[in-house]
């Protein structure tokens, strides 16, 4: 079993109607725990987040590098709603695995698009058994995009292998018209592919194979 950790942001949202609020801003159907994508008007990715209801709050786990953009995206849309936002990233460490992680009591478990996820207090860390290279090889085999590689603010979710997080029937979220038009016209543009090395345009380079985003 491999356990990998990464630079994640952990935000806590408190307030009324949090799931409908998030549902209106993201590509996936948000009515419980899920992975979803915040997109901008051009359907480009702001952040890919885990939505985890937790007591009367919602935990949003995203990527640290896109945290400030995500917070700004949320802030301007509170519009007087009774919502508070806490950044508890520094208090928690997020781990990913291909199996359920044996984590300390009080840890929060979640099934993510990226694998089994566990969020632990930094005071009670989990042993990391996967190196960056191990995780890279796993991602290549699973055709799994990741932030800092395939997932960036330059691409839309359909181009970087996050099509499963774009709900086919859901309407009215930011960027929806573009994504729906691409699907309905079957003009998917670029797509995430696994190719044999050597590769010039690789976004993730493995021992024998790499991940690329190419027009097909």
């Amino acid at each position: 079993m491999g356990v990998f950790t990464f630079d994640a942001s952990v935000l806590l949202l408190q307030g009324d109607d949090l799931l409908p609020f998030l549902d209106g801003l993201t590509t996936n159907k948000v009515d419980g725990p899920c992975t979803t994508v915040f997109t901008n008007l051009h359907a480009k990715i702001i952040d890919v987040c885990e939505v985890i209801p937790f007591n009367d709050q919602v935990v949003l786990v995203g990527f640290e590098a896109s945290k400030s953009n995500l917070i700004e995206h949320l802030r301007v849309r509170f519009l007087g709603r009774n919502i508070t936002l806490q950044d508890v990233s520094h208090l928690n460490q997020v781990y990913l695995s291909n199996k359920i992680v044996n984590a300390p009591e009080g840890s929060l478990h979640h099934t993510s698009f990226f694998g089994k996820m566990v969020i632990c207090s930094t005071a009670k860390p989990v042993e990391v058994t996967w190196s960056e290279n191990d995780f890279t090889e796993y991602r290549i085999q699973e055709l799994l995009p990741f932030y800092g590689h395939e997932i960036s603010s330059d691409v839309h979710p359909l181009a970087c292998g996050l099509g499963a997080l774009v709900h086919p029937q859901k309407g009215c979220y930011i960027g929806q018209e573009i994504l729906t038009r691409m699907r309905s016209r079957n003009k998917m543009g670029k797509q995430l592919l696994r190719v044999e090395n050597p590769v010039d345009d690789a976004l993730t380079v493995g021992k024998t194979q790499s991940l690329v985003i190419r027009r097909v």
């Binding site: 806590l12 408190q14 935990v59 802030r75 936002l85 806490q86 520094h90 208090l91 928690n92 009080g106």
Partner: peptide, 18 residues
């Protein structure tokens, strides 16, 4: 998970437009 319900972290100030 540490939800920060102690003095270590407080809610972020959401600046509302004037």
């Amino acid at each position: 998970m540490d939800c920060g319900t102690c003095e270590t972290t407080g809610p972020m100030v959401v600046v509302q437009p004037d």
